[in-house]
Design a protein around this nucleic acid. Structure first.
Lengths: 207, 207, 207, 207
DNA sequence: TATGAATGAGTGTTCATTCAT
DNA sequence: CATGAATGAACACTCATTCAT
């Protein structure tokens, strides 16, 4: 029962993820979702109470997967610079692998407090994950630093959407660029008192 | 004559800017725009041939104003660091002053090639303006640097949308933070010829 | 299942036939059609993809029924004169029985190539049905003759529309008149080989 | 004053005749009429109080011209057969010369009693003109005969609308065909008591 | 559970008409 | 008389949602 249910539940989420992602919330019809999921229109409503509810679920699954995968990758690395690179690469490639449907975040339904709240929560969690890494590098203003890093990556990722000739190598190059640029900036932003020593350590990390 | 015409044209653009910005494209009704502009529904169509056309016009005016003001401010400053600060402050305050309707870029109509093309153009122009400044600081990879800076600022600005207690002082603080952080990162990324040792280390990192 | 579907399909066609017929294409609202058919507005679009599509379907059904009934009646009669009468009576009474909605052909949507093509096809088929009968009477120029007969009947039918006191007896009288008048005209227009003298005179007239 | 007024009045009627004729009542916009007439939109309303009023005026002028020209042509001919031919040719060529805008009668606005009444009046007048000729041929049932003749001509004219290769020669041929066919039918329809004598006279007419 | 036929509220757009200039 | 900017009623069509089967 729960299996059957889960199969359809997942099929709907998958279909919705693809369609919302490529066409946006408003340009995606519930009937399209049902068709892509291989079920009847009415069935979607057995699993999700409304289109907005479905969008929330898609967003939630997407964001949770994003954070989960990031945590997993971070656990496999130990040095500060490695971790910065992991964050950058994860950010770039998560979108690169989803080229077709990265419009998602551009087209959320407005005025939905639940969604806005969730997006804020996601941002907070993502930021905290980055902050945790930054604190290992003893950066001051870690929250602003984390936001900056995320923003940098987010923009560097943009060309994936606009430039059809964007390659995997481009994604790698940008990830490295961001990590390198940021580690330097971050390094220069250490807590004053600890500047000398830490900086040496940091530089060793980098080398 | 041309004034009367311009008055209504402007009134519509203003109304649309506010409404599209706060409710998004799809949740904004043409009748709302008309009402807010103080004219009849049909009149809107005397000035803009469709809702999408109106959205394009709003976007275009907004983006052009953004770039124009930025250029003006940059001309009043001479040093590299000053200019970086000007960019950061302009980015933060342009949105800060438009708190009410900054959802604009989240809710563009999908699949409108004209709009996508224009947004790409805007990004290119914005980036080039930043690149021009960065070249004065002799940064290498100026385009990636510029995108990074813009992305950083864009994310730092986000809390304006989510955090109602966000103050003007916060905006200033973030602008300074970004400029400072970035100028250091940029400094570490100078052309090899002029910054032998540091740059070599950095390049080894990347390669 | 298929019955339910057909029931609604038919109900919509019936409602549309009446409304298009009495008010014309442009003065008939889809909501009126739905209301008269006893269903919701949206349901009409489950069966017909647009107002024009519905109009085409109504026209097609009407014309096909017209021709089908004519063929059936013709099969029950053998002599040339009988068949001419059948054509005349069918023409008169088909419209007489549809008094309320014979404005149909006056108010087709313009510039619809599909409709124009279909009307041309209908005319061709109707004409050929009459031609077939006329050939039994060995008329020369059967196509012009057929068109003439149809035109004659069409005009004689007009008063049904304009004259509220038009009776069934009037319809009969006119049918007989047309058949009689035309059969004499047709008789005078036989193939030369079989009607030497008369035909020669007629040909001289024409040349 | 009256001249200037008349110029515009006529220009509007001409423009409207062309547009209503080629696109029909509903597909013709008042702004198109104004533009084609070379005047401002509002000016149309100084001469005609509404779109329907304009349509009425166009129809009236067209029909009156039709009848007037027919009367003129009939006065130039004396014999019965000549007059029948004149009617036929006039009917064919009036439409032939207006190929581009013969949709006129197909697309009148429904439910306009004034228009319906006028069309009935026109038909009555046209019919009476034909009746007058027929009476010279001493036909019985002259009204039905007249309607038949008109209907015949009307249908024979139809191909002008549908067949782009329809030539002036085709129009002539059909006019002759109708006149010839009808004169024979009419001749056979003389008042019984006078059949013999009149028939001879009629035949002499034809020869 | 699953279906898909039916619903009907909602909205972009048109265009005949008006009226201040 | 002439203009054309402004009006706003009107309508086809869409699509999220429901519910009888």
């Amino acid at each position: 029962m729960s299996n059957v249910s889960n199969d359809k539940h997942t099929a709907i989420l998958d279909a919705a993820h693809t369609l919302f992602g490529s066409s946006g919330f408003y340009e995606t019809k519930m009937s399209d979702v049902a068709e892509k999921a291989g079920i009847a229109k009415g069935t979607v409503y057995l699993y999700f109470k409304s289109k907005e509810d479905l969008f929330m679920a898609v967003t939630r699954r997407d964001c949770e997967g994003y954070l989960q995968q990031l945590e997993n990758k971070l656990q496999d690395h130990t040095t500060f610079t490695d971790k910065l690179s992991v964050i950058a690469e994860h950010h770039m490639f998560y979108y690169y692998e989803r080229k077709q449907h990265t419009k998602l975040f551009f087209l959320a339904p407005n005025n939905n407090p639940e969604l806005v709240a969730y997006m804020a929560l996601f941002m907070e969690q993502y930021m905290q994950a980055v902050v945790k890494v930054l604190l290992e590098g003893r950066a001051s203003e870690p929250e602003l630093m984390a936001q900056s890093y995320i923003g940098m990556l987010d923009r560097l990722k943009m060309d994936i959407l606009f430039d059809p000739s964007f390659t995997e190598a481009d994604a790698f190059k940008r990830a490295k660029f961001a990590a390198s640029l940021f580690s330097k900036g971050a390094m220069n932003n250490l807590h004053p008192a600890e500047d000398d020593k830490e900086n040496n350590i940091a530089n060793e990390d980098i080398e």
